[in-house]
């Protein structure tokens, strides 16, 4: 049964946009907190300049950017009722997301080994909270994508589910947009 709408837009999609708007504020607050505390390190602690591996993070950022392309291609393929291609792009997106999360886990482990833990100093706390929160968002996105992929394997993914995939796509693009901001402000801005 088609839902009635007074605004002329899908309620599910509108709901996702409202959620994304509120998530903007959450990440804004986390980024601001990081900016405030990034210099709060002990005299013997390693700072952001010594810790960050920019070439490595750049590759991760590129992988996440390309996953935005694959998810949009999955949506357009589903719109054309090309289920096979949509499934391939969905799986590609999930794999690219997993590579990004894997990179983040590797980065966190490397930082920990170098002596930067969650409670070492305020810089560490702010950094791990911000990037960790983003990593959790990516992981949730992978779960969404995989659920759609499993649905497609069971033959339940049709062009009727286009809007659902589009909403998941919006979430995925938002995660990408947030990383664009984090990558520039946290990693690339002069320390």
């Amino acid at each position: 049964m088609s839902e009635t709408t007074t605004l002329g837009v899908s309620h599910d999609k509108l709901g996702m946009w409202v959620f994304l708007g509120s998530d903007c504020l959450l990440f804004g607050a986390l980024i601001s907190t990081y900016m405030l505390y990034k210099d709060r390190i002990g005299p013997t602690d390693l700072g952001p300049e010594e810790m960050f591996d920019i070439p490595f993070t750049s590759v991760s950022s590129f992988v996440l950017l390309m996953s935005s392309l694959t998810v949009v291609l999955a949506i357009t393929a589903l719109r054309r009722n090309d289920i096979r291609r949509s499934r391939i792009w969905l799986l590609s997106t999930a794999i690219l997301g997993a590579i990004f999360v894997g990179g983040q886990v590797y980065e966190f482990t490397a930082f920990y080994r170098e002596g930067l833990g969650y409670t070492t100093n305020l810089f560490g706390t702010a950094f791990f909270t911000l990037t960790g929160f983003h990593g959790v968002h990516v992981t949730v996105g992978i779960i969404f994508l995989m659920s759609m992929y499993i649905q497609s394997m069971r033959g339940k993914l049709t062009s009727a589910q286009e809007e659902r995939l589009e909403i998941i796509g919006l979430y995925w693009h938002f995660v990408d947009v947030v990383w664009i901001v984090i990558f520039t402000i946290v990693y690339l801005f002069p320390q």
Partner: peptide, 10 residues
Amino acid sequence: KFFLVAGVFM
């Protein structure tokens, strides 16, 4: 980059 993703992909 922000506007490109929001405008085109989203």
